[in-house]
Design a binder for these strands. Sequence first.
DNA 1: ATGAAAGCGCTAACAG
DNA 2: CTGTTAGCGCTTTCAT
Lengths: 327, 327
Amino acid sequence: MARKATIREVAERAGVSVGTVSNFVSDKKPISPSTRERIESAIRDLGWIPNAAVRVVKGGRSPVIGFLIPDSSNPFFTEVANGIEDVAIANGGLVITCNTAGEAQREAHFAKSLSEMRVAGAVFTEMTASDQHVEQLVASGATVVLFGLSEHARVNTVSVDDELGGFLAGQHLVERGCRNIALLGGPGGEPQLRRREAGIARALTPAHRTEFRRLDAQDNSLKARVAAATEVLRRDPAPDGIICGNDQIALAVLAAATAQGIRVPQDLAVVGYDDIEAASLAAVPLTTVRNPSHEMGRLAAKMIIERTVGDRIALEPELVVRRSTSP
Amino acid sequence: MARKATIREVAERAGVSVGTVSNFVSDKKPISPSTRERIESAIRDLGWIPNAAVRVVKGGRSPVIGFLIPDSSNPFFTEVANGIEDVAIANGGLVITCNTAGEAQREAHFAKSLSEMRVAGAVFTEMTASDQHVEQLVASGATVVLFGLSEHARVNTVSVDDELGGFLAGQHLVERGCRNIALLGGPGGEPQLRRREAGIARALTPAHRTEFRRLDAQDNSLKARVAAATEVLRRDPAPDGIICGNDQIALAVLAAATAQGIRVPQDLAVVGYDDIEAASLAAVPLTTVRNPSHEMGRLAAKMIIERTVGDRIALEPELVVRRSTSP
DNA sequence: ATGAAAGCGCTAACAG
DNA sequence: CTGTTAGCGCTTTCAT
């Protein structure tokens, strides 16, 4: 493969002008059958692959959607990414999933690269959306969607009612008779955790004399989660119900409880969050608050394809009861 | 934000030529301090974001690595992607992870889009590497890496010895006294499964009079895996050892065994493959054959950054023994 | 150290 | 239906 073929070489070989070849590939103007054939074989002979960057230089957008997430090991984000990808592909596009891993430096790199690429759009999670970076993408001309809430007039949002999610989980545990409930969170996502905390608080009627406390894992590693779970289980008085920031944390609680000889659900009720596939496969299948992951991705991608501006979509979570809370 | 600023506007506002601004951003030629300051503030005032597509139109490559995988729900690929991303980011790049989901049409879309984008490189897995698409990326000028084996002179390969992996798993089960071993695979990845099968066969010395049979799940869903696991467990004679194509299949076997009242490891030994994080967290922690996921990703990305051609790297898997095979 | 100008590959507007 | 041509925004010589 010497040098790469260009549209001009294709045109010469087919004996037509570059404009005609361009019309052929874009399929916008009618082409006579004989011309069509000659162009087709010229392209085949030369192995011409159009250069998509030209469209972008000429003011178009790259058919790419950037998706910034805080933790690539969480399957919930993979499910959301699948939703984005399905819509992107249906519209000829691609998705760049960017794992910030909670590092500001990485987030900055992604924001810079995506904006310079002139991506069609970018999807941020609350944990990965610093004002500066969101603004940078907006300024580059990208359609921006935020999972969560925002005041920014040009940013679209897709949110799931976290207060309600917390309430559903809390109510469920109170009904099960739990009197000492803990919330086990993780790094980042503070606004989200606070909304859930408020929902839990609303469920804990004083009439039940229910205790409530919160603890956070240090980072998103399995080790940190197990450590935090172990700590919360050793509290005095011991919690009889734990609501987790996500299902992976809940899985770590299950492991820590087993290690300490605490039985789930007899001694301890555990509620996860998100409803990833592993939740139903766990040693003790997990009760969890389901977020509509795939749908969230689809909706965000749709907004980008349609170049929506400043729209707000609100969704509702759903409590899925499994064995981890049902004696 | 009216129209987006261009380098020309920046140059005018700074009172210099576009060439000087270009030299400033590329940092290749010396710029006098006063000029530098004026350019800096002009860029800030105008909010100029360079258009990365220009570099690509002028013959450069897009600083992007495409990664084609067959199943985004498998954390093994996420770990590999993390390895690719770490190296890509360190070199100013990004990764586009493309989930073919086993569909040829999606693979074709990704190959077309990535080649037209003029990505710096593409990483294929054996399951997602049709000759035609690999060739398309090579023809576009991308550096291609294949996880597996290839004859293609321009393609680099990173392989992990599957025959050895199969042998290690088989040997372990034979030593544990298993006499009726099953291999539970999945769709795609046939060459890989066959190499492992050969390794297992080598471990099954006739002296032990060991039976061996294979079955595949229909697709990558949890449901299909549990169905296949259930079927293999109902065979007569019942298997006393199962080696799985990946850890997620092994997790499904654990679930199916529990449902049928089969105890692991007392009645049945289970070996997974890859060593994803969930393997150690499982109800019964999984013995598994570890593949160096992160390292594989790193090496592939390194080849792309260095524009390596036709290199072959071979790695070795490692048996990790946990409770699913240790009574 | 800075400027001027020729393209990169293709699209789109206009002519014919 | 097809040809001609002026750019898109920036990089890159080649001068100065």
